[in-house]
Write a protein that binds this DNA or RNA. Structure first.
Length: 864
RNA sequence: GCCGGGAUGGCGGAAUCGGUAGACGCAGCGGAUUCAAAAUCCGCCGCCGCAAGGUGUGGGGGUUCGAGUCCCCCUCCCGGCACCA
């Protein structure tokens, strides 16, 4: 065995061994329990970043740990290969997205392989492969048949200069990211998936997921947002015709406090009012530039204009004025809302601003209402009772809603309904680099589904988008196709699918045999559901919800037999880094990588300014945020791997923090991880020259303590692994080595036997985290051919026993010392020992103790 | 704005149930080895204090023999907000 630790040789040796033994090839088998360990597949952005290393190391640690625990493990990998960055790269470098994507995949795959992950590469897939996305199209057609997929208008961001639809990410401060043009809202047709039909199942089945973090389940439940309320109407007469303005509210108990109603700018009533009113028309035009993003909607200035139109309050018969509000969205609910300024904070602010009446209709005992300022209790449902509400006076929330709903219903003007915040999933994207939607538009037959035997509709792979719309519009060979129904010339749909479709079922495809004739096959039933899914917390809602929905649709079509795709979920925290940018007057924002920046800091270490190294000119410090390609703040792990090796990179990543926690990137601890592995190697090298010797019956007491520490640390580390707390597992490895080195230095009789036993424990404990060094040392020390097949170590009871234990001594809850008692001492004995202690006597000053609290095995507290 | 999460030494973090705050590392300081350096090894290391001791887990209040941990209020940071993935 070589004396010096050389990661490159060691890692090559181990990886060659795994390659030649096909160590990670997963085969369905009833002989062992299965464990499907899946990390979210990466978008092939170019290079791995630290978030990937973190994600995939976590998955690999769990994979290898379960292998050693006797499971039949599957860990696959693939590529979320469609998406916007490929088009952006095409615009910049004139390279077709397909080529750019495949080049990135090749590079990143080699990076993943150099990290030594226990991946079954025979199951690799990329979502841009026709053999994969064919089944997106196939399932979409099944959804069309079942009415789950349907067509309606959608609102998009329109760049009037580039004549193209922009992603939310491409809209910055209301302007197009490349052109700087003011972005407009535009309504265009698109396909939707009826996820709201599954809203109750998606909500209720969260209870079937005990292995998911509570916070993720809470976020999903809130996102679905099931609410019970009342849908009702304000009748009105327009041009002699009886009409109804419908609204939905969860606060029907405040209906007597309605002082106006607000409709969206796109509402028919708004259009009617604006016909002969230039001011209204101008406001509606202004609303076209309101962002479609919820975050912008919620934070923007709420504006409104009265229409001069009135509707009738359904219960009081009073006339209520209709306003147009920029905060009311046509797409949500009815496109109109009732306004109760006294009991809704947003309405309150709006009423103050426009001097609209505020009418209190709910009171809370002991509180005084003032129309001058909002108070939290105004919207309190729990403790309020109705006032100024006629026959409803004195009723609480539930009773008032019941009574009011009954009265509305009797008039045919409303009823109780259940609503969801969740909206149907719009899947059409006006983009090139995605899965084509399998529809053909015929002048006579309308939108015709592509017949199954003509699937997949293949995307031409040689297009180069230039930023001005979808290049498919110019591809005659793609566009022109005979209508499947009538045979006349027709045009293909050029929209592609949301990439969330691609990632909604890839896990099921990994688990099957990549059949050309079926979406999934019978092997899927063996591996699914995923036993452990690992991915970033940023996917807590959308990706996970869409995958759950897609699974339920597949189940209802009889394709799979599970209700939920992911039994256990680990959401890793984001890896963050500094973000630097420059914002030219016109054109795209320019981002700078942290290594391209010189920082200025104040005395407290706060960042006060930044300049680009290249030109010395200032750049904007945007604070800290997720590592991403677009913001150029990712750190490429390659330099780390090249300098220290994969084991150090993996070890450091696990050691840096617990997996669920956000991690601000800093590489200052990498040296320490490398030092540790060098010590592991050196200790292994020392042992390799020694003969095997068993642990004797009796040990020197100091050596016994060391052995006890090793086994105790092992016990703790195994528990920590079950809790997914890998950082303390890494520390446990360090503690064990510290203990073994101490044994060696003390050199007591029998040290070698304790060191050999402890080191074999250490290697197995480390092998999921640093598999290469563990593999080579395990073989080199003659423990066996393959540490992968070695059993996980168990702490020995005999090594853990001790005769005497130390208890913390507190006086009045303050730590004052310690006492030693026999391991089996009972409460009375401990109390006596504590009271007899010198320190206790000093504090008692001759008085009797008021109380003595004994916590077995831990402490004793004397209250004076 | 709304939903979810977080805050512990100079830094990353540890502390199963409410029971010794700071494990394990990084950085720093002192020493050994060396012609010298790198590497390695040994020791010290929350803050105030010469010490006794006091004080300390983002800030304020509360419960308890005892609070980083439980309850109430506040501040700041991160993630998500439906076309980034």
């Amino acid at each position: 065995m070589q004396e010096k630790y050389t990661p490159s040789d060691i890692e090559k040796t181990a990886q060659t061994h795994w390659e030649s033994t096909q160590a990670f090839r997963a085969v369905a088998s009833k002989a062992k329990p299965k464990y499907y360990c899946l990390s979210m597949f990466p978008y092939p952005s170019g290079k791995l970043h630290m978030g990937h290393v973190r994600n995939y190391t976590i998955g690999d640690v769990l994979t290898r740990f379960h292998k050693m625990r006797g499971y039949n493990v599957l860990q696959p990998m693939g590529w979320d290969a469609f998406g916007l960055p490929a088009e952006n790269a095409a615009i910049q470098n004139s390279v077709p997205p397909a080529q750019w994507t495949w080049d990135n995949i090749a590079y990143m795959k080699q990076q993943l392989q150099s990290l030594g992950f226990a991946i079954d590469w025979s199951r690799e897939l990329a979502t841009c492969q026709p053999a994969y996305y064919k089944w997106n199209q196939w399932l979409f057609l099944r959804m069309l048949e079942k009415g789950i997929a349907y067509k309606k208008t959608q609102v998009v961001n329109w760049d009037p200069v580039d004549q193209t639809v922009l992603a939310n990410e491409q809209v910055i401060d209301g302007r197009g990211w490349r052109t700087g043009a003011l972005v407009e809202k535009r309504e265009i047709p698109g396909y939707y998936l009826n996820i709201t039909k599954y809203a109750d199942q998606l909500l209720d089945d969260l209870d079937k997921l005990p292995g998911w973090p509570e916070r993720v389940k809470t976020m999903q439940a809130n996102w679905i947002g099931k609410s019970h309320g009342v849908r009702f109407a304000f009748p009105y007469t327009l041009d002699g015709k009886e009409e109804k303005l419908w609204v939905y509210t969860t606060r029907a108990d405040t209906i007597m406090g309605v002082t106006f109603v607000a409709v969206a700018a796109e509402h028919p009533l708004a259009a009617y009012a604006a016909k002969n009113n230039a001011e209204l028309a101008a406001f509606i035009e202004e609303c076209k530039h309101v962002s479609v993003m919820e975050a912008d909607m919620a934070t923007m200035e709420k504006k409104g204009v009265p229409t001069g139109l009135f509707v009738t309050h359904p219960l009081t018969g009073e006339q209520v004025e209709v306003w147009i509000g920029n905060y009311v969205l046509m797409g949500y609910g009815e496109g109109a809302v009732m306004a109760v300024p006294a009991h809704d904070e947003r309405d309150f602010g709006f009423a103050l601003k426009y001097k609209l009446p505020i009418k209190q209709v709910v009171a809370v005992a002991g509180q005084t209402f003032s129309a001058d300022a909002w108070a939290e209790w105004y919207s309190d449902k729990q403790n309020g009772t109705c006032i100024h509400s006629g026959k409803y006076d004195g009723l609480g929330y539930a009773a008032a809603v019941d009574a009011i709903a009954a009265d509305l219903s009797a008039k045919g003007l409303g009823e109780k309904t259940t609503q969801y915040r969740l909206r149907d999933w719009g899947v059409s994207r006006q983009r090139y680099w995605g899965c084509p939607i399998p529809i053909i538009h015929c002048g006579s037959c309308g939108s015709v589904p592509v017949p199954d035997d003509q699937l997949p509709v293949k995307l031409p792979e040689d297009c180069v988008p230039d930023g001005s719309g979808n290049p498919l519009h110019k591809r005659e060979d793609f566009l022109n196709v005979p209508c499947p129904k009538c045979g006349k010339p027709a045009k293909r749909e050029t929209d592609t699918m949301d990439t969330f479709v691609d990632s909604s079922w890839y896990y099921a495809r990994y688990a099957s045999k990549f059949s050309e004739t079926a979406m999934v096959d019978e092997e899927t039933a063996y591996w699914m559901p995923v036993d452990q899914y690992i991915g970033g917390i940023e996917h807590a809602i959308l990706h996970l919800l869409y995958s759950r929905f897609w699974s339920k649709v597949m189940r209802d079509l009889g394709l799979v037999n599970y209700d939920e795709p992911f039994a256990n979920l680990l959401t890793q925290g984001m890896v963050l880094n500094h973000i630097f940018s420059r914002h030219p007057e016109k054109g795209a924002i320019q981002y700078f990588a942290p290594e391209e920046i010189d920082l200025q800091k104040d005395d407290a270490g706060r960042i006060t300014g930044a300049r680009a190294k290249a030109d010395g000119l200032p750049v904007t410090y945007q604070g800290i945020g997720t590592m991403s390609k677009s913001k150029r703040n990712g750190v490429d792990p390659q330099a780390l791997i090249d300098q220290y090796g994969a084991d150090t990179a993996r070890f450091f990543m696990m050691f840096a923090s617990p997996p669920e926690q956000t991690l601000e990137w800093a590489d200052s601890g990498v040296e320490g991880a490398y030092r540790f592995l060098k010590r592991v190697w050196a200790f292994g090298h020392t042992l390799s020259a020694q003969p095997q010797c068993p642990v004797p019956q009796t040990l020197d007491s100091a050596l016994g303590t060391i052995r006890r520490e090793v086994h105790l640390t092992l016990k703790q580390a195994t528990y920590d692994l079950s809790k997914h707390q890998f950082n303390t597992v890494a520390s446990a490895g360090m503690k064990i080595l510290n203990a073994l080195e101490k044994a060696q230095k003390d050199g007591a009789e029998g040290w070698l036997s304790v060191a050999q036993e402890g080191f074999s424990i250490l290697l197995r404990l480390l092998s999921p985290i640093t598999p290469h060094i563990a593999h080579v040392l395990w073989q080199g020390l003659g423990h066996g051919d393959d540490i992968l097949t070695a059993p996980w170590p168990e702490p020995l009871a005999a090594a853990l026993v001790q005769d005497e234990i130390e208890l913390v001594l507190q006086v009045n809850g303050k730590h004052r010392g310690s006492i030693k008692v026999p391991a089996g001492a009972d409460k009375a004995a401990i109390e006596a020992a504590a009271l007899a202690d010198e320190t206790t006597q000093r504090f008692l000053e001759g008085r009797p103790a008021k109380k003595v609290v004994v916590v077995p095995g831990r402490l004793v507290n004397v209250v004076v």
